[in-house]
Amino acid sequence: MAELNEANTGAGAILSRDMRLIWRHRSDIVNPVIFYLIGITMLPLAIGTSKQLLGTVAPGMLWIMAMLATLLSLDALFRTDFEDGSLAQFQLSSQPLYLIVLYKVLAYWLSTGLPLTLMAPMLGLMLSLPADGYWALLLTLLPGTAILTLVGALGAALTVCLRSGGLVMTLIIMPLYLPVLIIGSSAVSSAVAGFGFDRELALLIAGLAIALIVMPPAIAGALKISTNQ
């Protein structure tokens, strides 16, 4: 019998539960990573291999594909928990729901946002991203994907009990994704052009701070509304 880890109580146990589930379901979670890899690989084949052209579109393309990859399996974030009654257990837990939600989002980000961010410089190489852009790409995707995951989780929570909620979710959260996309890709572009990207990075980190405070209670509230049907 497995040794019981008594210290592993509270909402933190949800993080280890979700990380275990994700790890044992690896085939699902490599999906976004493969999507990102294939999407970027196809680009030079479709628009040509001119170094100058690729270098110009690279910042935007790397950001757009990262955004879409984050979105890919996000609508299932709460679905299985809703279907097997785990969500009701979360709601009736003496742990606050927003904390449980935060750990679930963190587990999702660790398994998609983080690998996508770490992959991005390598893919940038394939698009011949100018050398100045690599740090900007890495540093802006890090808070950027975290914001995208937090905002996306709100959409997932709102549509958890809809049978085909994917499209509705995309429609709800797309407008909220736009500022992140605009700031993120312009940071990389301005780094490539030789200007600094401090301003954009500061904006993204501020955005992340706000999302971290606002989103977990909003997601918890959305889950309560959705399941109260």
């Binding site: 497995a2 019981l4 880890n5 592993n8 109580t9 509270g10 909402a11 146990a13 949800i14 280890s16 539960r17 275990r20 257990q89 979360f90 009736l92 837990s93 003496s94 742990q95």
Partner: peptide
Amino acid sequence: ENIQWLRSLHP
């Protein structure tokens, strides 16, 4: 593992 996470919801 299932029993553990279910129990962790109540301290």
